[in-house]
């Protein structure tokens, strides 16, 4: 389990950020000197609609403790409708993960525009705290154990 210098759990977080809004939002957060935890690993995607539910499961399998998907606000998608499809898919996936007994809150969707650097930083800080309180992701890794 990765720990920080104070011997506290340091979660690994994967953020899928849409190129047109939240990725630029992260940039703005940086240039405005707003901080967000360094254990958030950003993966740039062309649109939140590009995020296949398998990406999220794969991230967990590879050791992520939380996954957050950031896209344009509904109505503002660069490709007009991509985030609407993403919204349906993620609603169903999150509900399924809950149904299988994965803790609520390990996954999240946040709409964050290119102008919302402050929101990006705040969201990431909040999400990081939430995951730190949930602890390491064990369940999704152990869904099938040979016993």
């Amino acid at each position: 389990m990765p720990m920080n210098e104070n011997n506290e759990f340091k979660p690994l977080i994967v953020a899928f950020c849409c190129n047109w809004c939240s990725y630029a939002g992260a940039d703005l957060a940086g240039s405005s000197r707003l901080t967000y935890p360094e254990n958030v690993k950003i993966i740039r995607v062309p649109c939140s609609g590009r995020v296949n539910p398998m990406f999220i499961l794969r991230a967990f399998e590879r050791g992520a403790d939380g996954v957050i998907i950031c896209g344009c606000h509904p109505g503002d998608c660069h490709y007009s409708t991509g985030n609407y499809y993403a919204r349906r898919r993620m609603a169903l996936l999150f509900s399924m993960l809950e149904y299988m007994g994965i803790e609520n809150g390990r996954t999240r969707v946040e709409w964050c525009s290119a102008a919302e650097g402050a929101k990006f930083s705040k969201t990431m800080n909040e999400f990081c705290e939430k995951i730190a309180s949930l602890g390491e992701n064990v369940r999704l890794g152990d869904l099938r154990c040979k016993n």
């Binding site: 609407y84 499809y85 993620m90 169903l92 809950e98 999240r108």
Partner: peptide
């Protein structure tokens, strides 16, 4: 199919859980 469709008022993923 509902997954190749959407409405503007669909619920948010966070409303789907809990």
């Amino acid at each position: 199919s509902p997954l190749t469709d959407f409405t503007f008022e669909d619920l948010e993923p966070k409303q789907a859980v809990g």
